[in-house]
Nucleic acid binder design. Structure first.
Lengths: 123, 123
DNA sequence: TTGACAGTTCGTCATGTGGCGAATTATAGT
DNA sequence: ACTATAATTCGCCACATGACGAACTGTCAA
């Protein structure tokens, strides 16, 4: 506990891509391939971001077969993490751009998950 | 407004020195030379940190003669900044290390301000 | 007006960070 | 067992960041 934890959390939040991931996860858990599609970045890049977010407890992963689903930490999180997520939620709620981004997300979620993964492997 | 502001705030918080400055300022405004002493870093380094914190509205400066005093933003801050500061306050309050740091700060504040500046110019 | 000095800005350097593709790991289907 | 594939890890590169000292700016005192 202490300042180092706070620095780690702030570092995790100090990146646009990671904030977009967290914002996307406010709608519920997502598969890695969905996050990759949403962010339009390489799977290796997204995986690294997810490790950073999970490393300080902001998100948690759940493995289901070949797929891994990530979700925001809730009750299980430290008080510090919960405070950070609370700030983020209020920040997103008065963010005009978020709503545009959320539409992008809806399109991704609407796609069939298997078709999505197949389309990624073609690249 | 929006995500860019949130990223800027998070970047500003993503550094141990800047967090220590913010923590110190929770006790009220401080002169730059006091912050320099508290952090044990070069004035140019501290100045840069203060510009970053002020740049996203977390702190404000007040010039008084040759001295500049910085303080945490309050009512004048955006909702986003106020949310971030609220998170930080709760974070500092359960930080065991903060109390040690605050004693360091007390010693700095206890020193005569002019004597402090003189001792710095000797270096 | 000249000198001293608080603070900022500038130039430089070492280190940290985000991006990608290639290689690796683990799981599902044939 | 073998192949395909979701995800992670590794190695690399370009760029951002934090540190310093030197130079600059503005203000007070002699």
């Amino acid at each position: 506990m202490g300042m180092d934890e706070t620095v780690a959390i702030a570092k995790a939040l100090a990146d646009r891509t990671r904030l977009r991931i967290l914002m996307a996860l406010t709608g519920g858990e997502l598969c890695v391939c969905q996050i990759v599609e949403f962010c339009s970045l390489a799977p290796s890049t997204i995986s690294k971001h997810l490790q950073i977010l999970a490393g300080c407890g902001l998100i948690s992963g759940r493995k289901d077969g070949r797929w891994v689903y990530y979700h925001l930490s809730e009750k299980d999180a430290t008080k510090n993490v919960r405070g950070a997520l609370k700030w983020l939620r209020s920040s997103f709620s008065d963010d005009a751009h978020s709503s545009i981004d959320m539409k992008t997300l809806e399109k991704v979620v609407a796609k069939d998950r298997e078709a999505l993964c197949r389309s990624q492997s073609k690249k």
